[in-house]
């Protein structure tokens, strides 16, 4: 119960921070922009030739500029909550909070709230986008953003390369929600990893952009030796991606690895600070 209070308190603090507000607004604006662009592009089209409402998204791989969004992804994952621990240390509020709630609850609350807030930042804008698309666009639209019929044999062949392709065939809406949630989880794991790194006493906040960035860079490039396929992380964090060679096990392993490293680094530094 007390851990939940700690999570609630630290989450409400993070929501009030500019880091969360700006990242959320940026992603929200980006998601809305994509919907507006596709609404404009489809003006005057027959409903049956329109894009399926669940296949218009700021993080669908069919959107032209999503690859560039993916380049900002490692930075954006750190922005909402990645600096929260280092901020607490610098402003010395960590001392006050630990005195109030106890050290263990503070750290547990910290890691969970960082994960939650980053998850919210990367999912809610796109969930709202889905809701908006369902209201704006007709259900009769069956095309993918690339122009192919979503249920045509050609597209279905490529859709076999989607992560959770079976879910895609059964229900595109649930596939959208779960894929977006996975992206949010990956971003949250990156934020937890960054907080773990920050517990080593990093002096400049700028350096905190490097760990997740370098993790992704290395993960992409050694993937060909692990899963015999070289894939950009973009193909995992975007949805409806048809590039072959993806592995859900690999993706989940990266997420778990990030979380574990974040937790271990934090635990190591708690011990280190105790013995100083």
């Amino acid at each position: 119960m007390e851990v939940i209070n700690s999570i609630k308190m630290q989450s409400s603090l993070l929501i009030r921070k500019k880091g969360f507000q700006i990242s959320f607004l940026l992603l929200f604006a980006y998601a809305m922009l994509i919907s507006v662009i596709y609404a404009y592009m489809q003006k005057g089209s027959y409903t049956t030739e329109m894009i399926h409402p669940a296949m218009i998204s700021g993080i669908t791989s069919d959107v032209d500029y999503v690859w560039f969004f993916c380049r900002y992804f490692p930075f954006m994952a750190v922005m909402p909550a990645g600096f929260s621990f280092i901020n607490d240390i610098n402003t010395k509020t960590s001392v006050l909070l630990k005195a109030q709630m106890g050290e263990k609850r503070y750290y547990m609350g910290k890691l969970v709230s960082v994960f939650l807030i980053t998850f919210i930042t990367f999912t809610f804008p796109f969930f709202i986008e889905l809701l908006l698309n369902v209201i704006i666009f007709p259900f009769e639209g069956t095309r993918a953003a690339t122009g192919w019929e979503a249920y045509s044999l050609t597209y279905v062949q490529y859709a076999n390369n989607h992560l959770m392709s079976r879910l895609f065939y059964n229900n595109i809406y649930i596939y959208y929600i779960i894929s977006t949630a996975l992206t949010g989880i990956f971003a949250g794991a990156g934020a937890v990893f960054t907080v773990g790194i920050s517990s080593f006493g990093i002096k400049y906040k700028a350096f905190l952009f490097l760990p997740f960035y370098l993790f992704i860079y290395l993960a992409e490039n050694i993937s060909k030796y692990i899963i015999s396929s070289y894939t950009y992380i973009d193909t995992y964090i975007t949805i409806f991606d048809i590039i072959e060679g993806k592995s859900m096990a690999y993706y989940l392993t990266l997420i778990v690895l990030l979380m574990i490293m974040g937790i271990i680094f934090t635990a190591i530094n708690i011990r280190r600070n105790e013995t100083r």
Partner: peptide, 28 residues
């Protein structure tokens, strides 16, 4: 193409890492 430009950005990652490190040299 977006693919080639993404490759360009990926190749620039060591530059970005260098810039982050020396971007605080005067600021510190």
């Amino acid at each position: 193409t977006s693919g080639h430009l993404v490759l360009l950005m990926q190749s620039m990652i060591p530059m970005f890492a260098f810039q982050i490190v020396y971007g605080v040299y005067i600021y510190k």
